[in-house]
């Protein structure tokens, strides 16, 4: 750590640290307020004198969320969607990243540009053609209609990011493996994959978020089968502009945010170093 630290004079450092703590508090405040709102009794939320604490925390809002709707089911649905997208896009992106970093072939650069350009595509605008495509596949109203497009949309960025990790594995390792008589497949799955795993984790954060956040596809493709709804849709049930049930909204938001938070904290180290690694190469 000391390598980076500048010789900063003490008062300045204290000021910097105070600023950092203050900023951290401001940044964390919305999340704190969300938790607070989720645990507050109903009367206190609708009070015009909001206080930054609560004397009588209650689980009422959570109970309302889980009772009124099949929230548990939506939660599982969201997990299924995000999980499938993460696994599928990680594997596919891993193969593609290996191809573009460890081989030379015609159109390699073209493909790389294509992966970059593919990130530009405004996903929302594609809702229209995707709707018709999913309809023709007979996938509307199923979780498949959410999983497939998200795999496609998270792939380009994943490939782009994974390149750095794949490239960082020394080529001597590959040669050594072949000298030992390993097949290409064996090298790929037994040697390269474990080494690139931290990169895959960092990458999967992005695909996880995009799939977990999805709101537009769920809104457009899950037409009438409420058993296939996902969390964002369920959240909107509580947010009715004319009479929002803020307690319910905050409780539902909490339920929706916590898994992502846990995921982030788990992969936090790899994310920080991973992002550094990905953009540097």
């Amino acid at each position: 750590m000391s390598r980076v630290r500048l010789p900063v004079r003490r008062p300045w450092r204290l000021a910097a640290e105070a600023t950092a703590l203050l900023v951290a508090a401001v940044v964390a405040f919305p999340l704190y307020w969300m938790l607070l709102g989720a645990f507050r009794p109903a009367g206190e939320i609708e009070s015009t004198e909001p206080r930054p604490w609560t004397a009588s925390p209650t689980l009422d809002s959570f109970r309302r969320v889980f009772e009124q709707h099949e929230f548990g089911r939506y939660f599982v649905n969201s997990l299924v969607v995000a999980g499938s997208v993460v696994v599928a896009s990680a594997l596919i992106a891993f193969l593609a990243a290996t191809a573009v970093t460890r081989f030379r072939f015609r159109f390699r650069t073209t493909l790389l540009i294509m992966f970059l350009v593919a990130q530009m595509v405004p996903v929302e605008a594609l809702t229209i053609p995707l709707f018709f495509l999913m309809r023709d596949f007979g996938l509307l109203n199923t979780l498949g209609s959410l999983i497939l497009p998200h795999i496609a949309f998270s792939l380009p960025f994943a490939v782009w990011m994974l390149r750095g990790f794949v490239r960082a594995v020394p080529e001597s390792l590959e040669e050594a493996a072949y000298l030992d008589g390993a097949s290409r497949a064996r090298f790929l799955w037994r040697i390269l994959l474990p080494l690139v795993l931290p990169g895959l984790v960092a990458t999967s954060v992005f695909s996880f978020i995009s799939a977990w956040n999805d709101f537009l596809f769920a809104k457009s493709f899950i037409i009438s089968d409420t058993s296939q709804s996902t969390l964002p849709m369920a959240l909107l049930v509580f947010y009715k502009p004319d009479e929002p049930d803020w307690g319910g909204v905050m409780a539902a938001s909490t339920v929706m945010t916590v898994p992502v938070l846990v995921f982030f904290v788990l992969v936090q180290r790899r994310l920080v170093s991973g992002l550094g690694g990905a953009v540097k190469d």
């Binding site: 709707f131 018709f132 309809r135 007979g138 509307l140 109203n141 809104k219 457009s220 037409i223 009438s224 089968d225 409420t226 009715k240």
Partner: peptide, 26 residues
């Protein structure tokens, strides 16, 4: 029978989507 109560304001999108895919329509 499963009943879903849909908001009046955004009914147009829902209903049209249903017309567009008879298979998933109510």
């Amino acid at each position: 029978v499963t009943v879903e109560y849909i908001p009046v304001e955004t009914r147009a999108q829902r209903v049209k989507a249903a017309f567009n895919d008879p298979r998933s329509a109510p």
